[in-house]
Simulated scan of single mutants.
Amino acid sequence: MSDIMIRRRHGKSLTEARASAEHMAAELNEEFDLSYSWSGDVMRFKRPGVAGDLAVDEHEVALNIRLGFLLFALKPTIEREIHRFFDENFPV
């Protein structure tokens, strides 16, 4: 297993940050068939070979992803895509 952990500060309200996270999750669902659900301000997601959570608060978003063995080789590509999604949805 390989982990990806990314934290980013944002300048949004909690409601705006959660809406951005929801938008990001909808895009990931459409592009990668990633299922997700919310538990409070934590979104949990999964698909075969990938599981994780995205926590949103008033100041930052924190993403934790666990990649299965078969996706380990794609970790750099996946990290680039995550940063791109963060840049679009949580600009600094």
Rank of each mutant, 00 (worst) to 15 (best):
M1A: 12
M1T: 14
S2L: 14
S2D: 15
S2C: 09
I4D: 06
I6P: 00
R7V: 13
R8M: 07
R8F: 06
R9V: 10
R9L: 14
H10R: 04
K12H: 13
T15E: 15
A17R: 00
R18H: 10
A19L: 08
A21F: 05
A21V: 05
A21D: 06
E22P: 00
E22Q: 06
H23T: 15
M24C: 11
M24G: 07
A25H: 02
A26S: 10
E27R: 11
E30L: 08
E30V: 05
E30H: 09
E31R: 07
E31F: 03
F32K: 05
D33L: 03
S35H: 02
Y36H: 14
Y36F: 15
Y36V: 12
S37K: 12
W38E: 03
S39P: 07
D41R: 12
V42F: 05
M43A: 10
R44H: 13
F45D: 08
K46C: 13
R47D: 14
R47V: 15
R47T: 15
R47L: 13
P48E: 15
P48F: 00
G52A: 10
G52C: 11
L54N: 02
V56N: 03
V56S: 04
V56I: 14
D57E: 06
D57A: 08
E58D: 14
V61E: 04
V61Q: 06
V61K: 05
V61L: 07
A62V: 10
L63Q: 05
L63F: 11
L63R: 03
R66T: 15
R66M: 09
L67V: 07
L67K: 06
L71I: 08
L71F: 12
F72V: 11
A73T: 08
L74A: 15
L74E: 13
L74G: 06
I78Q: 07
E79I: 09
R80C: 07
E81C: 00
E81G: 06
I82S: 02
I82V: 12
I82D: 09
H83A: 06
R84W: 07
R84Q: 11
F85E: 13
D87H: 01
D87G: 02
E88D: 12
E88L: 01
E88W: 00
E88R: 00
E88K: 00
F90E: 09
P91V: 04
V92N: 12
V92T: 08
V92R: 09
